[in-house]
Design a protein around this nucleic acid. Structure first.
Lengths: 192, 192
DNA sequence: TCTCCCATGTAATTCGTTACATGATTCC
DNA sequence: GGAATCATGTAACGAATTACATGGGAGA
């Protein structure tokens, strides 16, 4: 009658961390071991997550504890364990991917929306990607205008390098906006 | 004979965190209280550090403990304490600002080099800014080439959104490189 | 058997987060 | 005096980092 497992499974619905979401998404593409995932983080330039075992294995254990991952193989000793999302895991992944991009996404970690977008088509399809891009472009536009206003009002007596560094930030968001326009055209072209 | 203070003061020379460096740099511009610094993080779009007291006050306490900050005012109770860098604090700040940008800076936190650059001119002068930009441009160029090679070799069977997300990343670094060229021209123009 | 690499994990420490507690000031 | 705001901090917790420990399998 051990209730520990059940209590673990119904752990409070804390939001998944970005790392946990990325792991879910990668495991949906192909069931892998923790070691494989570490290699992805080590050798892939896409995500800049840490490949350290102390980051990856505890994150996988949390996901498994929540019932979002199941493992096959590697019963005894220290053998390879292949992990894959459960039905609940697929649900959690979809839920993460469906989140619309917000202003907060831009502040906290600039690449978070792009991480979602990278995995979006395979799970939610083209139309969801299109909607995401449109909204993302709007958010970027609003934020760029906000930054421009700040620059006008508060950057009058900054040093040259201070002003330039600020410009570099604004410029990055402008470039991202231009990319959104291009991406929408690319998707439209591929649809036809 | 209590040695605790001395042991604390000579605590092992752990590297300063980005937050600690940013606090030092802001306090060099103008001595402020922890509350002022929190407001900077809350209202400024430049740095996206947390304005939570649980982040700022412990960081300030660490800096003070290391002898990099000194405080004036606010002896009893909960009164405003104005903080400023000590001589050692100014030294630590210069040391941080003098670090050349590296490939690792781009991976870990994209904006870390720009944070240094923003404070650089007032402390190290024009010529240091120019050198920094030249080196930063080189690092960016190398990394862009590396990403382009990765795209050619490993992105053949990715989804549309996956490929586009990757392009967005590369594009961001290309935009940053273009900004470096513009910034160098701006500095040259202001020098003349 | 010895060695190297595959593979999974844990321990100590540090830092940030959210939430809470509390003293000082100011303004009505 | 009472309420709002200024101002400083602590407590509990979650998660990442570095470093270490250990076991399994392949080939010399």
């Amino acid at each position: 009658m051990r209730m520990v497992g059940r209590l673990g499974a119904r752990a409070k619905a804390r939001e998944l961390s970005l790392l946990e979401c990325a792991l879910l998404a990668l495991l949906r593409q192909s069931p892998s071991s923790g070691y494989d995932l570490r290699k992805v983080f080590a050798e892939t330039p896409l995500a800049h997550f840490s490949d350290s075992p102390g980051a990856v294995y505890p994150a996988l254990a949390r996901l498994e504890h929540r019932g979002l991952l199941s493992s096959s193989g590697g019963s005894g000793g220290r053998k390879r364990r292949a992990l894959r999302p459960t039905t609940a895991g697929h649900g959690a992944l979809r839920q993460w991917l469906r989140k619309a991009p917000t202003r907060a996404d831009l502040l906290q970690w600039r690449d978070a929306p792009m991480l979602r977008f990278a995995f979006m088509e395979e799970v939610l399809g083209r139309e969801a990607c299109r909607r995401f891009l449109v909204r993302y472009g709007e958010v970027l536009g609003e934020y760029v205008r906000e930054l421009e206003a700040y620059g006008r009002d508060h950057l009058t007596q900054a040093s040259s390098s201070g002003r330039l560094a600020f410009d570099s930030g604004v410029d990055g968001f402008r470039a991202q906006r231009r990319w959104v326009e291009r991406a929408l055209r690319t998707l439209a072209k591929e649809d036809s």
